[in-house]
Design a protein around this nucleic acid. Structure first.
Lengths: 178, 178
DNA sequence: TATTTCATGTAACGGGTTACATGATTGG
DNA sequence: CCAATCATGTAACCCGTTACATGAAATA
């Protein structure tokens, strides 16, 4: 799975602009993918040359012109080939938060508590976003999409529960010290 | 957080070889970090030149010589500076599995079921590893480390539960079709 | 005898991010 | 009037992986 696969997948249902692709990545896909303009636009140029998409210039008044990207039959073939390829090993996660927890012995409990609370806040925000997405679109989503979003929701819930329990146990340890 | 921070952190408690660092990454840290020899050895060379670690050659008979890496006071300062720096935004996850679920509408239920089962197996393996780590070392681990591993465990449990439920609902849909 | 484990390293390649550059409109 | 939103793109850089190279001992 790379940027090309993801972009082609997004264009399977409707034509989009590079800007909209970035929006979708941030809103809908942020739980399992991310990409920047520095990747998106060069990728779009490349796959246009390769004949996987076509650019359609749309003039707008009041707003800058935009390039609406359409997927070609060749592009559809390419995306389907990705879906037929073997499932790639699970996600690459690099979590600074988890790393710091692991090295928690080198800082005071107070610091660990701060990290936990920060992670708690962040996860809460992410969970809320997922829950909103879920309630808004669950009726029109494909069953597989529903499972995808449910996994995200349940993972965040589990993380939050465990963080909360961890906070309780740490705060108890702090009290015992004083 | 980068390879340097992680390596220095590992050396805080004991001297290790590059090979052992790789082992630790695969066994203990694999849930929130990964790195290859192509990163580890060049990083070790660089931070040795920078005076953060020292190499100590240990001759072994029957086995190749090994370079035992010791962290220097400067290296310790450097690692502590990392711990004092602001917590970096949550992990970058790129999950092919989740991406495919999201695009599930473009394949049959049977394919989605295969993907779910594959992810189930993989997560089961990972969960078992974490559970084993937990039962083996939980008594000698720092409370923060315990929380770290608990988060991993609970996330995998949540994922597995949701996948299992998803499988049930999909298999029902397949039956209704036929 | 063949594979795994221990052990260290390099070179080519790929993929991606950050920061920069541009510029008009809309809303607070 | 200032910030945010819409909109597209480039260039330098960084970090990392893959594959290769070497080689001995233990294990199956």
């Amino acid at each position: 799975m790379n940027s090309q696969d993801v972009i082609l997948g997004m264009l399977m249902k409707e034509a989009l602009t590079g800007y909209q692709i970035k929006q979708l990545l941030e809103n809908v896909f942020s739980n399992f993918y991310s990409s920047s303009y520095g990747t998106i636009y060069p990728t779009l140029s490349r796959i246009e040359k390769e004949g996987l998409i076509t650019k359609e210039s749309v003039l707008q008044d009041g707003k800058p012109n935009k390039n609406l990207l359409n997927i070609t039959p060749k592009g559809r073939d390419c995306f389907n080939a990705y879906l037929l390829a073997p499932l790639e090993g699970d996600s690459i996660r690099k979590s600074d938060f988890m790393m710091r927890l692991y090295f928690g012995e080198f800082v005071g409990y107070d610091k660990v508590i701060i990290w936990l609370k920060q992670a708690q806040e962040e996860s809460n925000t992410k969970l809320d976003q997922l829950l909103e997405q879920y309630s808004l679109y669950k009726d029109e989503m494909h069953p597989a999409q529903v499972i995808c979003i449910q996994i995200g929701i349940e993972e965040y819930k589990a993380k939050l529960t465990t963080i909360a329990e961890g906070l309780v146990s740490l705060e108890q340890l702090v009290q015992e010290q004083s």
